[in-house]
Amino acid sequence: MDIRTLALQGREPDAAELCARVSDLCRDGPALLVCDATAVTRPTLATAHALARAALTARRLGVPFRVRAAPPLRGLLDLVGLRQPLAEPLRQSEQREPPGRVQEGVEPDDPAVR
């Protein structure tokens, strides 16, 4: 599984530059692009805007995009409604047994259910 990481630093990233970097990293189709924004300690709405545009760029290229964020940025993403689509934690799918089939016995004298 090819996972690429993009480091985001500075206070207000340029959205166009960030999208260009995302396009370069997604050129040969990694399985996932993670934007490491833990260095962003004072996020602004411009930060959230740039991350949203970067996520759209990655998704248009068919690459899932996630943000690894420090608490101030997670709070801002939550406030603007982007935390779930961008900063949702990466989880491994659980191994479950396939659902069992319901086995019903029918008695000859049972009335039909209506």
Rank of each mutant, 00 (worst) to 15 (best):
R114F: 07
E17A: 15
P85Q: 08
R91Q: 11
Q92Y: 08
T44F: 12
R83Q: 13
L25Q: 00
A69Q: 06
L8C: 10
A70L: 05
A58H: 14
L45F: 06
D110Y: 13
L86I: 01
C19Q: 06
D36K: 14
A112N: 13
I3Y: 01
V40N: 08
E107K: 01
R68N: 14
L86A: 10
T57N: 12
L61T: 06
G10M: 10
T44G: 15
A87C: 05
Q95S: 06
E12Y: 05
A46H: 04
L82G: 01
E94Y: 05
T38Q: 15
F65V: 00
S93D: 10
P43I: 11
R42T: 08
T57R: 15
Q84H: 14
R91F: 03
A112L: 13
A7H: 14
A37V: 12
D109W: 14
P71W: 07
A37R: 08
R60N: 07
Q9Y: 12
A69P: 12
L8S: 11
C19W: 09
R42Y: 08
Q84R: 14
R114Q: 02
H49D: 15
A70P: 04
A48M: 12
R68L: 15
R74K: 15
P85S: 02
A112F: 02
L45Y: 02
A16N: 03
V22F: 03
L8R: 08
F65A: 04
G29W: 09
V67E: 04
T5Q: 08
T47F: 08
A87I: 09
Q103L: 07
D36T: 11
V106Q: 13
S93K: 07
L79W: 11
R42K: 10
R83H: 15
L56K: 02
V67R: 12
P71R: 10
C26W: 09
T38H: 13
D109P: 02
G81I: 01
L8G: 02
A48E: 09
D28S: 09
D28Q: 10
D28T: 04
E104Y: 04
L25D: 03
D2S: 07
L79G: 09
A112H: 03
Q9P: 01
P64Y: 02
E94I: 00
L61E: 14
P72C: 15
L6S: 04
A50H: 10
G100K: 11
P43K: 13
G81S: 10
Q103F: 04
R114T: 11
D109R: 07
D36V: 07
A7M: 01
Q95M: 10
L25E: 04
Q95N: 02
S93Y: 08
T41P: 05
A37D: 05
R91I: 04
A112Y: 01
V80M: 08
L73W: 15
G10N: 01
E12P: 00
A69L: 13
A20I: 07
